[in-house]
Design a protein around this nucleic acid. Structure first.
Lengths: 187, 187
DNA sequence: AAGATTATTTGACAATTATCAAATCGGCCT
DNA sequence: AGGCCGATTTGATAATTGTCAAATAATCTT
């Protein structure tokens, strides 16, 4: 529970009472490789936190799988629009390794956010951080070359290459597998 | 003040007390065409709401101006990262017509969000909406052709073409002026 | 209204990346 | 070890859009 608590404190402080109620509603799962945390067309009920392992978030576009995010290293992740708008998700969330994840259910989170002002504030800050990140990513997709995006990824997550198949990485970077291969081979 | 109040109520209800304190701190300005609401390298202190007129948000990339957003039709707009992280902004916000705008200062907003749980919730919902929108936009930039993005804009904001120079529209769509011209002429 | 400035269009060409096809590599199975 | 299957690389070609240059159109100033 400790790394989760640290991650939360890092975003926004909670009163001892709020923190203890908050931590209490997080569930913990140990799941095998290729486990589905969210399946297509179902409503996303949880915000997850990955303590150990890797998960990828993807969706189908035409016939291809588009990897939207790869979660590791004690990050929070979720299907944003499905979770907040309570609509069936186009996304699939799948573990790529045996993993340990925490999750908080939408009902629990909203109840606590209603009861505790500081939980609402925490949630607001989490969403704000995602928004800023989303804009950075948009800028990267729009203006950087595939090469630059690959290098940025190497800087941000050096180990990701060893743990995730290149086809997922390529899709995450917004290029084809072939293009990524050429980038890696130095043209 | 009425359209602002409606826009707020539309996002999240506020208690009468919160609503009246909240509305009270919004300032109102009537500004001429080409007025700068935010200049480069200054810290963005306001969230704006445009009641009448148009504003564009842009920044410099290499030597070019990149139009990040065009605000009209009673929308909220701001420099997200500068406002929330309190850092100098790379963005410029400039009116394209004589405009009427409301603005709430960061200090006032944060004070009210601390005092009133429902204001904090309103803010959370505003940020969440932006985040979802940001992801839709990312998808559009990554997967749609320039042609499709142009058509999407025409659907969303049919009048924008008459009111905004094509060079700004092109940049907002993520294409060059020349490409937009070719799209419009039907290749 | 003429001239000047700015906005938009058109043309030729180059760069990046996708697509399709095939070859090779790597690990796993029995 | 031999054989298979999926993952990755390599090759050839095409599509989309950018860049640079120039022409034309529209708007503003006086």
């Amino acid at each position: 529970m400790d790394s989760l608590q640290k991650a939360i404190e890092n975003i926004s402080p909670l009163s001892p009472g709020s923190m203890s109620s908050f931590l209490q509603v997080w569930k913990h799962w140990s799941v095998p490789k290729d486990h589905l945390l969210l399946r297509e067309h179902s409503i996303s009920d949880y915000i997850y936190f990955i303590k150990k392992g890797i998960a990828r978030i993807y969706y189908h576009k035409n016939d291809k799988e588009i990897t939207e995010w790869i979660a590791m290293d004690e990050q929070f992740f979720l299907s944003i629009s499905s979770f907040f708008e309570r609509r069936p998700s186009l996304l699939v969330i799948q573990t790529l390794e045996a993993s340990e994840v925490y999750g908080i259910h939408h009902n629990d989170l909203m109840t606590l956010a209603d009861q505790h002002h500081d939980v609402e504030r925490l949630l607001r800050k989490m969403v704000t951080t995602s928004l800023i990140l989303s804009q950075v990513r948009m800028d990267s997709i729009q203006f950087e070359t595939a090469q630059q995006r690959y290098e940025r990824l190497l800087n941000t997550s050096p180990h990701i290459i060893q743990r995730v198949p290149l086809s997922y990485i390529a899709s995450f970077l917004g290029v084809t597998l072939e293009t990524l291969s050429r980038i890696r081979s130095g043209k």
